[in-house]
C-alpha cells in the first residue's frame, strides 16, 4: 500500500484537528479500510486512528436508549449490549469472525456504509441517532446509498444512540465467501410501530421495507408478511444471488426475524 503518516490522537478534539489536514482519513478498526489500502484503492496521506480515544469507547444506558461509543469493537457490543438490547448484541456477535469483531467498530461500519454490512440495518430499524463531533443525525437521514452517508469530510461519528425496542431480531443470510450479509433483515417493534430494515439486498444500500412495517404494525406475526411481495428491481445481482433471489430472502428473513423477535 501507499505510505502515510500515522497519528493516534487520544481525544476527539485532537482527532478532528488531525483530520482537518489535506489527505487525512480516519481509521477505526480498519477491517475494511486496510484491505482496501492493500489494493491501493485508498491512499490517504495521513491516517488518524480513532482506537485510542477513550471517550469513543463503551456501551451504556443513557438518555434516549443505549449509547454505544463509535470506536467500540463489535465484540464489546456483543458482550455489553446483551442485557439491554439482545438483538443488537446478537447482530454484533455475527459480524465477520472473532478476530474481526475484536477490531472492527460500529462507527467504522456506519461511516463506510457497505451495502452488505450488518450494523446499518440495526441503526435504521431502531431509528437510532448518529452522534458526530458536530451534530446528531437521524438514521433516516444518515444512509444515502451504498458507501454514501450524510457525514461531511472530517466529521467523526462519536457515538450511536439506540432507542430500545419492545422486541427485535436480526436474521442474516451469509454470503458464503465473505460472510457479509447476502441479505439481512432487522425487525424492531416499538410502541409507535414496527420498523424493518434490510441490508445486503439493494443497490441503494440499507433500506426500510415500508409495506412490511405497516403490516407488522397492524399484526406482529410472520403471517403478516407472507402475503407481501418484494420488488426485485434495484436489488443487487452478483455471483451469489439474483435480484429475485434476494427479494425472496427479504421476505423469508423478515418472517423469520418476526418469529425470532424477543
Amino acid at each position: 500500500m501507499h505510505n502515510f503518516d500515522f497519528v493516534k490522537p487520544s481525544t476527539i478534539a485532537e482527532a478532528v484537528s488531525a483530520l482537518s489536514h489535506e489527505g487525512a482519513q480516519a481509521l477505526s478498526g480498519g477491517q475494511t479500510l486496510i484491505p482496501t489500502m492493500k489494493q491501493r484503492l485508498a491512499a490517504p496521506g495521513t491516517l488518524v486512528s480513532l482506537t485510542g480515544i477513550a471517550e469513543m469507547q463503551g456501551v451504556c444506558l443513557g438518555d434516549g436508549g443505549l449509547h454505544i461509543g463509535a470506536a467500540t469493537p463489535h465484540a464489546v457490543v456483543a458482550r455489553e449490549a446483551k442485557a439491554h438490547y439482545p438483538a443488537l448484541a446478537s447482530l454484533a456477535a455475527g459480524i465477520g469472525d472473532p478476530a474481526v469483531r475484536n477490531r472492527g467498530t460500529i462507527g467504522g461500519s456506519l461511516a463506510n456504509n457497505d451495502p452488505a454490512a450488518c450494523y446499518p440495518s440495526a441503526v435504521l430499524a431502531s431509528g437510532a441517532t448518529i452522534v458526530t463531533n458536530t451534530r446528531t443525525i437521524g438514521a433516516d437521514d444518515y444512509f444515502q446509498g451504498m458507501f454514501t452517508t450524510a457525514l461531511h469530510d472530517g466529521e467523526i461519528i462519536t457515538s450511536v444512540v439506540f432507542p430500545i425496542p419492545e422486541k427485535a431480531a436480526y436474521v442474516k443470510f451469509d454470503q458464503p465467501a465473505s460472510r457479509f450479509a447476502l441479505t439481512g433483515v432487522f425487525v424492531a417493534k416499538y410502541a409507535g410501530g414496527v420498523r424493518v430494515a434490510v441490508t445486503g439486498a439493494s443497490q441503494d444500500g440499507v433500506f426500510r421495507w415500508r409495506e412490511a412495517e405497516a403490516a407488522l404494525t397492524a399484526n406482529f406475526s410472520p403471517a403478516a408478511v407472507s402475503g407481501l411481495t418484494v420488488d426485485s428491481r434495484h436489488m443487487i445481482a452478483d455471483l451469489h444471488g439474483t435480484p429475485a433471489y434476494r427479494a425472496n430472502l427479504v421476505k423469508v428473513l423478515t418472517g423469520r426475524a418476526v418469529a425470532a423477535a424477543s
Partner: peptide, 11 residues
C-alpha cells in the same frame, strides 16, 4: 475475474 479473492470465492 469476478471471484478474485476470498471475499467472493467461497472456501
Amino acid at each position: 475475474l469476478l471471484s478474485g479473492s476470498f471475499m467472493d470465492y467461497a472456501m
